[in-house]
């Protein structure tokens, strides 16, 4: 594996009426870092985490007093539900006929992370709610999805790549919304302290978890 499978076919233009199966501009390749089982495991972790995220966003809508943020959370809630749906539908295609079986956190630390992220409820804690989602969890989604997209087989795993691209587009948009909301809320040294302390506490757990799919979320574990 690893051989360049595109060169021969792409440059064979001697018989002009026969088109190469891979056009000259199509540089996709066969090799990928994940087999079917590993892909299914990762997709199961994605689905579990996207579910926890959309549930949290939906639950928090009633708890935030800021009207613009209330509406954003409701909007983002659906996007992550849709990602969970994409992963839910991908699992049976990856030989997991009981998607619930793989709908699981990567490890205990990830479960603890979600519990800590969703803990703030009081109406005065919007900064903490947003920090958990937009400064810790969503950047981890962007990282894990990007790593997966760039390392899976471009040919055998094209359906996962397609879903990753859709999800990533949303993650970037949501991250930007979240960051804007946070910057508009963080106005005093005390706000800065609240945001950074909460972020640090959540990061600690996330580092222990190793990312959304556990150690190896963004590359082989050294």
């Amino acid at each position: 594996m690893g051989a360049d499978t595109t060169t021969d076919t792409a440059t064979d233009t001697s018989r002009s009426h026969v088109r190469a199966p891979f056009a000259p501009w199509d540089r996709r390749d066969l090799p990928g870092s994940f087999d079917v089982a590993e892909t299914a495991r990762r997709v199961g972790n994605y689905k579990w985490t996207e579910m926890k995220l959309f549930e949290a966003l939906g639950g928090w809508v009633a708890t935030v007093p800021e009207l613009d943020i209330k509406m954003r959370l409701g909007t983002h809630c659906y996007r992550h539900a849709w990602h969970a749906e994409l992963w839910h539908k991908r699992l049976p295609e990856l030989r997991e006929m009981k998607p619930e079986r793989l709908t699981a956190p990567a490890n205990d630390a990830m479960e603890r992370f979600v519990a800590a992220m969703t803990e703030p409820e009081d109406s005065g804690l919007t900064i903490e709610k947003l920090v958990g989602v937009y400064r810790v969890l969503i950047p981890r989604f962007i990282a894990a999805y990007t790593y997966h997209m760039n390392n899976t087989s471009e040919i055998t795993d094209a359906p996962t790549i397609r879903s990753l691209k859709f999800a990533l587009q949303d993650e970037f948009d949501d991250w930007r919304d979240g960051e804007l909301m946070l910057q508009s809320l963080i106005k005093t040294p005390d706000d800065v302290r609240r945001a950074t302390e909460h972020q640090a506490a959540l990061e600690d757990i996330m580092v222990e978890a190793g990312g959304i799919t556990g150690p190896g979320s963004i590359g082989p574990v050294q």
């Binding site: 959309f54 549930e55 949290a56 966003l57 939906g58 639950g59 928090w60 809508v61 009633a62 209330k70 509406m71 959370l73 409701g74 809630c77 539900a81």
Partner: peptide
């Protein structure tokens, strides 16, 4: 209604 739908997704 937004709050209610969000809560049902969560609860």
């Amino acid at each position: 209604a937004l709050e209610g739908a969000g809560r049902t997704a969560h609860d």
